[in-house]
Design a protein around this nucleic acid. Structure first.
Length: 554
RNA sequence: GCGCCGGUAGCUCAGCUGGAUAGAGCAACGCCCUUCUAAGGCGUGGGUCGGGGGUUCGAAUCCCUUCCGGCGUACCA
């Protein structure tokens, strides 16, 4: 319910706009209007203005009373009416449906995860995967048509090297694994330093792939399939989905028209043998289109990809969930597209996130300073299992619940704080199951379900029984759910929802402890069960947006 | 050098489209399970919101400046 708007209408003064209404500080009602800013124009003291507004209020059924305190006019809403409205909205989803109606027909492309073929899936990939996967769900939830794109790193000379290494040392008698490929690649890098002939072999093998020689392509496809098969297991555990796996290889034949167009529009020039688009007047270094040897670059592929997505999906927004390191790259690409006259260039956004390090040092596959995502998940799941054995050994489906709790903990680690901050991965953080964590949310949800199961059917609810401070605090928070999800989408920031859910769980737990829900008093029991149900449903829906499952029991 | 981002309690963070006493979690200490899930709740201690200017009735929030840290800065992605 948009009370700010209602209050503004109630005051009905041209000076007062909706944005002037603020949430009241603890102990000062629900909403407040600070009247200081009108003092100059009205030539009156703020307190006087507040009292004037108060005495001129029109019909006000949703307000219980107002109070003038200092220069503030405080609004105390009619709690009973608000409880009714919130419980009704939780049940029929009116406000969420309204948001969906606004967004119907809109399309958003989300480029996320974007892993490299033949490279291990480590915690460095967690952020893009989790943030993108969450945004994918959030946008869908809000009525958008979302297109999830895994822009695979499946092209480049490293595949020639890997092919050479595989032909030389690969064990063809058993199925290839991701670890084998990593080992082969490392060995190749080491040995080719001593043996230049080997390095040359890498280049010629890549040429074979480029030319489409069947033998080479077959092995290259094997690398790709092997990687995807393993990585998909992780995606499945995390609940991550994609609609397209078109990556670098896919755009190989789509760059030439872009280069031709850039040349035709006289945007390019040759500099030190390379073809570039100069961006000096925009305060940026030039955007490299082709190398001096004629090879295309990262930017070239992204220009082609952006065009392809625009043509194919007709997006209203296109997001790139990529680390902040690539800030300049995207600025350049977006600017070049704008210079090419693409009116949709304004709809492209680099959704950047901070760097992931491990024990204070940057991650490095080559130096073995990596943490594999599958291992992290397994560790959190194992710990969840151990806690279940300790606290609730009679629980059914222990493995499934441990899986949900462990994966949830990993997701919350990635999505719980603002994405722009750098994060240092540490096991004690992901393995923490108390306080502001996914297990806390899941626990609260399971607690709700448990009470609901015991409480049975909910009869007619008397909303006046939920106007005490503990109950009303929960209601008030539930009231901002739809706005919170919308805010999270507009900021491309899943952590907004994470914070919201933590607060909701805290408020509910306080309510839960403050008195019994199921009592002899039928009417009171129904009212409290209704509140519990609203909280449980909201927690579950909100967690799903963060890729966190909500088990019924734990 | 220039550009982007961060700097809030011992630690991890929220608040940053300006509003009333700056909030959580973790860690520390002290309480609360014969009663609906203690993965929970309550309480105590803990803050020059990096520093300095400015704008304003009012600044963690806006502007300027400065320090510290991360990242980027043409043929990797």
């Amino acid at each position: 319910m948009n009370y700010k708007k209602l209050i503004t209408e109630l005051i009905n003064n041209p000076l007062v706009t909706e944005n002037d209404i603020t949430l009241a500080t603890e102990g000062h009602g629900d909403f407040a209007l600070p009247c200081f800013k009108y003092a100059r124009e009205l030539r009156k003291a703020p307190q006087v203005i507040a009292s004037d507004f108060a005495s001129n209020l029109s019909e006000r059924d949703f307000i219980d009373h107002v109070e003038v305190a200092g220069g503030y006019l405080n609004f105390y809403l009619s709690r009973k009416a608000r409880v009714e409205a919130v419980l009704a909205d939780c049940a029929d989803k009116t406000s969420i449906k309204a948001v969906r109606a606004e967004n119907a027909g809109k399309t958003v492309c989300i480029d996320y995860s974007s892993i490299n073929i033949a490279k291990p899936f480590h915690i460095g990939h967690l952020m893009s995967t989790a943030i993108g996967g969450s945004l994918y769900r959030i946008f869908k939830y809000l009525g958008w048509n979302a297109v999830g794109i895994n822009h695979l790193g499946d092209w480049g000379t490293q595949f020639g090297k890997l092919l050479a290494a595989y032909n030389e040392w690969g064990d063809k008698s058993r199925p290839l694994t991701l670890n084998d490929m990593l080992a082969l690649y490392v060995r190749f890098t080491e040995e080719s330093e001593k043996n230049p002939e080997l390095a040359e072999r890498g280049r010629t093998e890549f040429l074979k792939i480029e030319r489409g020689e069947p033998e080479a392509v077959k092995t290259y496809e094997l690398f790709k399939e092997t990687t995807l098969a393993e990585v998909n297991k992780v995606y499945d555990r995390l609940g991550i989905k994609f609609d397209s796996y078109n990556g670098e290889a896919f755009y190989n034949d789509k760059m030439e028209p872009i280069i031709d167009e850039l040349n035709a529009k006289a945007l390019t020039e040759v500099s030190d043998g390379a073809l570039v688009v100069k961006l000096d007047e925009f305060g940026m270094p030039p955007c490299l289109i082709t190398r001096s040897d004629g090879a295309t670059l990262y930017a070239t592929r992204d220009l082609a990809a952006a065009n392809y997505r625009a043509d194919t999906y007709r997006f209203d927004k296109s997001l790139y969930v990529v680390a902040t390191q690539q800030n300049l790259h995207f600025k350049q690409v977006f600017k070049v597209l704008e210079l090419m006259g693409r009116e949709w260039a304004k709809d492209l956004t680099h959704v950047q996130f901070g760097m992931v390090s491990y024990e204070g040092k940057p991650l490095s596959t080559r130096h073995g300073h990596v943490v594999f995502l599958a291992d992290v998940i397994q560790n959190t799941v194992d710990k969840a299992k151990a806690i279940i054995e300790e606290k609730n050994p009679v629980l059914e489906d222990k493995d499934e619940i441990a899986e949900n709790v462990g994966v949830g903990a990993v997701m919350f680690f990635a999505l719980g704080t603002g994405r722009i901050k750098d994060v240092d991965f540490a096991y004690d953080k992901v393995l923490s199951f108390e306080g502001e964590t996914a297990p806390y949310l899941q626990y609260t949800h399971a607690r709700c379900r448990s009470v609901l199961a015991k409480g049975g059917d909910i009869g007619e609810v008397d909303c006046s029984l939920l106007t005490d401070d503990d109950s009303y605090a929960v209601i008030r928070h539930l009231d901002s759910y739809a706005d919170t999800v919308r805010d999270s989408a507009s900021k491309y920031e899943p952590s907004v929802i994470a914070r919201y859910l933590i607060d909701l769980a805290q408020l509910y737990n306080r309510f839960y402890i403050s008195g019994r829900i199921i009592t002899e008093d039928k009417k009171l029991t129904f009212a409290r069960l209704a509140l519990t149900k609203a909280v449980a449903d909201t927690l579950k829906e909100g967690m799903a947006l963060l890729l966190i499952n909500a088990p019924e029991k734990m």
